[in-house]
Design a protein around this nucleic acid. Structure first.
Lengths: 228, 228
DNA sequence: GAAAATTGTTAGATGAGTCTAACTTTAGTA
DNA sequence: TACTAAAGTTAGACTCATCTAACAATTTTC
């Protein structure tokens, strides 16, 4: 059984490699930085993970996950995202609150628990931040993502995820936009990229900064890339 | 913030003192035994807990909980029992499976999480084993307990708890008895104490051994001691 | 009340995960 | 290419929770 700490290393490695578009290996320094520990500590731990065949590594080289390590890291992420979904949709926590609690819950080991939780939540595909949830085999659909900035004028779309910064979330609350909302793009100025949208009977003008941080899918086909 | 380990000590102490009818202090040896560790380890830890004002202790003396220690231990038990209830009633786990998973879940710290979970479960008073769940202030109603053996012939009662041994649970499953069932006592032989009961349209004759291990309340007033 | 049994303490060791400080290797640049 | 900066490693130390082995205090029993 992996320790709490080992799981965190694997999770970080998945996030830094599997979920990164171009990087599939990474240095000890950046790994340490992402875990907020000293390189010396990470160096030791990477050796330990290599001994357990969870990572590939040679002294002074790069770190990458073995298939086994990737699967185990992916399961931590599965647990994290399922718990976040539970907290958000069943216990009524806000977006901002779920992460820290899920950081603890993700280390509860029972596989049966997670599969039952998955079923209880009706096999959600995305967590409250719109991140895809790996299935019980550790497989994940990484969807193409379209932002509100990319939606053509006249089209309808649906918000599936948002950039999770406190200020941004507060602003969204204020203008009454939330996940799963349907939004129509009414106009976009070529001069300054200000976008006029309508949703829920309201109309608003939003900045490109906001539009860049709202991830959406086509309201018709529910895809990020389509010809609708 | 208390460590996983410290919490387990406090939990054990609550179980050995607060929940014990006559004992309110305990020796290092029995504490060690109940935690399945060596007395030497417990001895050290007790000193540490004393330094944190969680227990009262003098060398070669007895251990007892301070009010602060008792409250913190009680909260671990609250978390444990609420999670057990969640696993049993929402995720459809069996009685026997919930304990081990709850042993891990009980150490998730967020107070808000537990209060929300409590609300989600509709403020249950008893866990699936029929044990009372402490409230958010660490207060607990320890009910008088009546067993099926004590119910007078002709009266109705409701099963609120069972002795949790695998064999016993299997037997209950087989005869179709479960928690929350209403049972009427039809007859009890003075000779061998065999009790005839009816429940759910069925009739069964049960041994004193079984009847002693089924905890019930009066079906009318939902109390263990009553004049109904 | 002294011997035996039980209970509890201390000292020293271990492994996990972390740190700092000093050193080594690799990579980037003038 | 040689120097410097960045990245990585090693050694030694610390904390936490545990152990074993030896010893000390207390309680029980005859």
């Amino acid at each position: 059984m992996l320790s709490f700490t080992e799981e965190n290393y694997l999770k970080a490695l998945v996030q830094l490699t599997v979920f990164s578009e171009d990087v599939s290996e990474i240095g000890v320094n950046s790994l340490a930085k992402s875990l907020d520990i000293k390189p010396a500590t990470a160096s030791d731990m990477v050796r330990k993970l290599k001994d357990k065949s969870l990572v590939n590594y040679e002294k002074y080289g790069k770190v990458s996950l073995t298939p086994d390590g990737a699967k185990k890291g992916m399961m931590v992420i599965r647990r994290h995202r399922l718990w976040e979904t539970f907290l958000y949709s069943k216990l009524d926590f806000s977006w901002g609150e779920v992460h820290d609690i899920a950081e603890e819950l993700e280390h509860i080991h029972s596989e049966k628990l997670i599969d039952k939780l998955d079923e209880f939540l009706d096999f959600p595909e995305f967590d409250p931040h719109g991140e895809a949830i790996p299935n019980r085999y550790g497989e994940i659909m990484i969807p193409f993502r379209m932002t509100l900035s990319e939606v053509e004028v006249g089209k309808d779309c649906k918000i599936i995820a948002v950039k999770d910064s406190t200020d941004f979330l507060k602003y969204l609350d204020k203008i009454g936009l939330t996940i799963n909302d349907r939004v129509r793009v009414i106009n976009r100025e070529t001069f300054d990229e200000l976008t006029t949208i309508s949703y829920d009977g309201k109309t608003a003008v939003v900045s490109p900064k906001l539009a860049d941080n709202l991830f959406v899918v086509c309201a018709k086909c529910v895809k990020a890339k389509c010809d609708c």
